[in-house]
């Protein structure tokens, strides 16, 4: 009897801890009260509406979008050739490169952020935006390399040879045959990179300056001063945005095959 109850109970608790906070935040964002509270006091959309009127949110949302999209594109531009080279050629030190590339996953973000601030931004006078861009690109790169590598591994190299024998150059074969067949992997890498960058806190925490903040950092700052439910509303909006993107990706691309 005990055993039969234990499994569903464990599962229930896990789900509660995973989904509970999310449910609370979503509920709080529809509150009619003036402070973040659960259970919510009444129902209104005013906090959702307020999110769009806060100037600093609009600015930091722009910064975050720029970093997520730009950083992911930059990481893909670096990562696709790297993944391709590692999958097709026997390179000396390929293992080292593979490890280096995954370092940002292993090294705590807080150290990356501090190091960038102390040894990159301050001594070299690099702008915060540039430093953020570099940091986010570096953070996304491991995902780009891994996901693209996975889809390249499924692609036989004789396809490229066939293209060459039909008259294509090596580069032509890459663009005409390889790229179209790893499109799903690239899109998956893009989504994963986008979400990683958008939700990134520890690195960005060190790299914020006057007028330049990513959205999560801005939300932290806002909460220190104001305790109304608009942060909850913003969180809900972002969560639904993420879920929407991932759901669409899974639906149309089979996202989970690559990750």
């Amino acid at each position: 009897m005990m055993q039969r109850l234990l499994a569903p109970l464990t599962l229930g608790l896990v789900l509660l801890f995973l989904i509970g906070p999310f449910v609370i935040i979503v509920a709080a964002s529809f509150s009619a009260g003036d402070t973040m509270a659960f259970p919510p006091q009444g129902f209104s959309l005013k906090w959702i509406a307020k999110v769009f009127t806060v100037e600093s949110f609009r600015q930091s949302f722009g910064t975050s979008m720029f970093l997520a999209i730009g950083g992911t594109i930059a990481a893909l531009i670096l990562g696709i050739p790297a993944a391709y080279a590692m999958s097709r050629y026997r390179l000396p030190g390929a293992e080292t490169v593979r490890m280096m590339v995954s370092l940002p996953i292993i090294v705590p973000g807080i150290i990356v952020g501090l190091a960038l601030l102390r040894y990159f931004v301050i001594p070299l006078g690099v702008s915060i935006t540039a430093a953020l861009f570099v940091a986010h690109t570096a953070l996304i790169l491991p995902y780009a390399v891994r996901v693209v590598s996975a889809s390249l591994a499924n692609l036989r190299s004789d396809m490229e040879e066939a293209a060459v024998l039909l008259g294509a150059s090596r580069g032509g074969a890459f663009f005409r045959v390889v790229l179209p067949n790893i499109r799903g992997g690239i899109l998956s890498a893009f989504i994963l990179g986008f979400v990683t960058s958008f939700n990134q806190v520890p690195v960005s925490l060190f790299l914020s300056g006057p007028g330049v903040r990513t959205l999560p950092i801005d939300m932290l700052g806002y909460m220190e001063i104001v305790f109304d439910p608009s942060v909850a509303a913003l969180s809900s909006l972002l969560a639904f945005l993420s879920i929407g993107i991932v759901f669409a990706a899974e639906r149309f691309l089979g996202f989970s095959r690559y990750v």
């Binding site: 036989r156 004789d158 396809m159 040879e161 066939a162 293209a163 060459v164 024998l165 039909l166 008259g167 294509a168 150059s169 045959v177 179209p180 067949n181 499109r183």
Partner: peptide, 19 residues
């Protein structure tokens, strides 16, 4: 270079372009 040899090859795996 292979792309200027005018030699055809049918691969064992066929190596068709799946897209």
């Amino acid at each position: 270079p292979a792309n200027r040899r005018e030699v055809g090859l049918v691969f064992q795996s066929y190596a068709l372009f799946p897209h």
